[in-house]
Nucleic acid binder design. Structure first.
Length: 423
RNA sequence: GGAGAGGUGGGUGAGCGGUUGAAACCGCAGCUCUCGAAAAGCUGUAUGCCCUUUACGGGCAUCGUGGGUUCGAAUCCCACCCUCUCCGCCA
């Protein structure tokens, strides 16, 4: 949710934002009209309520005829108020229905552009690996290691479901432990979060009402399966005034995530890149408005990239263009890691700044030194997604014999082995 | 899933149809006292929204949530949610 004062005082800024993001499903003039309608209906209602309140209070101290007269008047007012209440409610609903589609204000550093083609490459890290043998795709390596059984996964639950076993499982938990040990040093508190949540939680995060088709809904209870623990981590502080002045609150949430991948028919069908279910370590930060951009651009980036550098992977960082940027965010960096089998970079991380957009919806505030109440800023970032990390590790560290070198920093978490596939 | 108890402001906790947004105590903040502190005293201390170019201003709403009864509800009725106790089930 954005600050509605913008709509009243700087509609041109909103108009520019819609244009920058190539959003065409919002009519600002109509929205402004609905806002005025809503506010005037509230004014009418409240004036009547004030009158009614005065009448009721006088009844308490009146006797006899005077009292009877007042009751009659108050009765009439009460009936009118019922109608006015309904009108105000309807007007507010009509307004919110459209207003909830409004995007966040993108940061000025976000490049204008319609699609991912316009994403801006900010940095390239590490060396592109060279192979003197034909490289194999990750799913082939994984099958060879006995770590991936997609056939049985599909038989059980359909396409994009897999059994993951043996060394691939050990690899996931090695990555997890490595990341947690590193992140603990940066003040992140580990969390295991619910993966089923109420509708309000998804609305608060900004997933709803925009991206409803990505989310699994339970049939027998009014609950949804989350596609990221960002939802649960953000909602941890819903409707609270919290302490962030000293330093940002940092959480790392580990959860299984569920995604319908409704718009991805036929895309990345083979292997682990795009699954309906995968585990992820997600970072979430509540931070003051004063500190948020510094923390985002300096600390958070360094932390996320640091993990990848220690693994020795070749990756680059891009800024999502305005058209590619999710509506709820002000800025998003993706880390894209080299995928040798396809000779391209694969998105493995997403690091986003939501400004106060989510905090507004969920009423998450902090008090400044002067006692002022302000909305917090929220940041989220991928720690490791265990769908895509095994993919890039298998491919980048593969050997001619199909075995896979284990990055040195992970070896302590794998009984000091040097190779996956080693007996 | 069954039976019972309960959900009031930062906390404890009163109120159970009428000037109650809500006693009291604690906590917190400011002031007085003090060289400072403690103690004591005084003052203040919820949130959201609407209006007026905005003032230490006015109004409305909020006592788990949503409805209902009533001129009037924290107080009565209904539904739901949550917490606790007991039973059942289960990791």
């Amino acid at each position: 949710m954005i600050d509605f004062d913008l709509l009243r005082h700087e509609p041109e800024r909103l108009q520019a934002e819609l244009k920058k993001r190539f959003i065409t499903d919002i009519d600002l003039a109509e929205l402004t009209r609905l806002d005025e309608e809503r506010r005037s209906s509230i004014a009418k209602l409240e004036a009547q309520q004030a009158e009614h309140k005065k009448q009721s209070e006088s009844i308490a101290v009146q006797r006899g005829l005077k009292r009877a007269g007042s009751i009659k008047k108050a009765k009439k007012l009460a009936i009118e108020i019922k109608d006015l209440e309904r009108a105000a409610q309807d007007a507010t609903q009509a307004f919110i229905k459209i207003a909830a589609l409004l995007p966040n204000l993108s940061h000025e550093s976000v490049p204008a552009g319609k699609t991912s083609v316009d994403n801006r490459v900010e940095a390239v890290h590490g060396e592109q690996p060279h192979f003197d043998f034909p490289v194999k795709p990750h799913w082939q390596l994984a099958e060879q290691l006995g770590g991936l059984d997609s056939k049985r996964g599909a038989r059980l639950a359909g396409s994009r479901f897999h059994y993951i076993q043996g060394d691939l499982v050990y690899l996931q938990f090695a990555l997890l432990r490595f990341a947690m040990d590193e992140l603990t040093q940066h003040g992140f508190v580990p969390m295991l979060t619910p993966v089923m949540v109420k509708e309000e939680a998804l609305y608060g995060a900004g997933t709803f009402p925009i991206d409803t088709s990505e989310v699994y809904k339970l049939e027998s209870d009014p609950l949804y399966l989350t596609g990221t623990s960002e939802i649960a981590l953000l909602n941890y502080h819903a409707h609270e005034t919290i302490e962030v002045e000293e330093s940002p609150q940092r959480f790392m949430g580990y959860s299984t995530n569920f995604r319908r991948e409704a718009g991805a028919y036929g895309k990345d069908i083979k292997g682990l890149i795009r699954q309906h279910q995968f585990d992820k370590l997600e970072l979430f930060i509540f931070v003051s408005q004063e500190q948020s951009w510094d923390f985002f651009e300096k600390e958070l980036l360094t932390i996320c990239e640091g993990l990848m550098l220690k693994l020795g992977l070749h990756f680059r960082r891009v800024t999502l263009s305005s058209g590619d940027l999710p509506r709820k965010f002000q800025k998003t960096y993706d880390l894209e890691t080299w995928l040798p089998s396809e000779q391209r970079y694969l998105e493995t991380h997403s690091i986003s700044h939501a400004g106060d957009f989510q905090a507004r919806r969920l009423g998450i505030k902090y008090k400044t030194a002067t006692g002022q109440r302000r909305y917090v800023h929220t940041l989220n970032a991928t720690g490791f997604a265990f769908s895509r990390m095994p993919v890039v590790i298998l491919e980048n560290f593969q050997q001619a014999d199909g075995r896979v070198k284990i990055p040195e920093v992970l070896q302590p978490y794998l009984h000091n082995r040097a190779l996956l596939g080693q007996k």
